[in-house]
């Protein structure tokens, strides 16, 4: 009857954080030299692998902006590989301690006030969590993004001495993706500068732009991620990294329901 988007909290950015927990910089050169579409795939793969890694711990500030309203949250996140992630709200104080655990396809959320852990039904997982403009559908993992799309380099430009690849990605006809096309801008060192999401008529729906590239956790990393809807310019969400640390591994107990309930310092 009244189906509108459930705006819970932390879960949404799951994917963003997972993508970001990158570690080793895979050498673009390994894959270069292939034909033009192979090059496209290689660059996209490299860009996604750049953020992907074994494990990370980070603190970020997320701001959801609407025409008449704005809200900022501080979130701490632990990620391990692409499967496991845990998020906890640090502020605002009212929401402190709320957390979400994601393991593969399953998701739990914990609320300290009612002291309950709830497993989310799949229908809710697919929605735009936490009212941000990020959603699970958008931010695919590197293996599926390479598999589901044909990537081709359409242009190469140079800025500040670094090459920027413009990549157009068209999904395979049967790929389970909602988009009709993706556009990537990837720097030659593997940092993704932007990602555009287009519908089947090749009209831009929303766009992710990263800025403020600086050394974080031992490598260059864009500290600010902003996603905005094309139809409503007043609506956007930004994530600003305050702390970021990459690890070779994190203990499994973090990614358990007990870990979800554990109080945050």
């Amino acid at each position: 009857m009244y189906r509108y988007k459930l705006i819970l909290s932390i879960t949404a950015i799951a994917c963003v954080f997972v993508l970001m927990s990158g570690q080793k910089i895979s050498a673009a050169k390994d894959n270069s030299g292939a034909d033009i579409s192979g090059l496209g795939s290689a660059i996209v793969k490299q860009a996604f692998d750049y953020y992907r890694g074994v494990a990370s711990i980070s603190v970020a500030e997320m701001t959801i902006h609407r025409a008449e309203w704005e809200r900022t949250m501080k979130i701490k996140a632990w990620t391990r590989g692409v499967h496991d992630s845990l998020f906890k709200i640090i502020s605002p104080a009212k929401d402190k301690g709320n957390g979400t655990l994601k393991k593969g396809d399953e998701m739990w959320t914990f609320n300290p006030k009612v002291n309950r852990t709830i497993k989310l039904p799949p229908s809710m997982m697919s929605q735009a969590w936490m009212g941000s403009d990020f959603s699970n559908n958008d931010l695919a993992k590197s293996d599926t993004i390479v598999k589901d799309y044909t990537h081709s380099v359409t242009d190469v430009k140079e800025k500040d001495g670094l090459k920027i690849f413009f990549i157009e990605s068209i999904p395979h006809p049967d790929a389970p993706v909602v988009w009709g096309m993706l556009h990537f801008k990837v720097r030659e060192d593997g940092i993704m500068l932007s990602q555009g999401f287009y519908d089947e008529d090749k009209i831009l729906v929303k766009e992710l732009v990263t800025t403020d590239i600086k050394m974080m956790g031992g490598k260059l990393f864009p500290a600010v991620w902003k996603i905005s809807k094309q139809d409503e310019k007043q609506e956007y969400t930004t994530i600003k990294y305050l702390e970021l640390e990459f690890k070779d591994s994190l203990p499994s107990r973090i990614f358990t329901r007990a870990g979800l309930k554990k109080k945050i310092r």
């Binding site: 705006i7 819970l8 609320n111 006030k113």
Partner: peptide
Amino acid sequence: LTILGQGKDGSIAAGI
């Protein structure tokens, strides 16, 4: 029953 939603100010609403 546990109710989990979002309050008017965007914060998390939870109650038993």
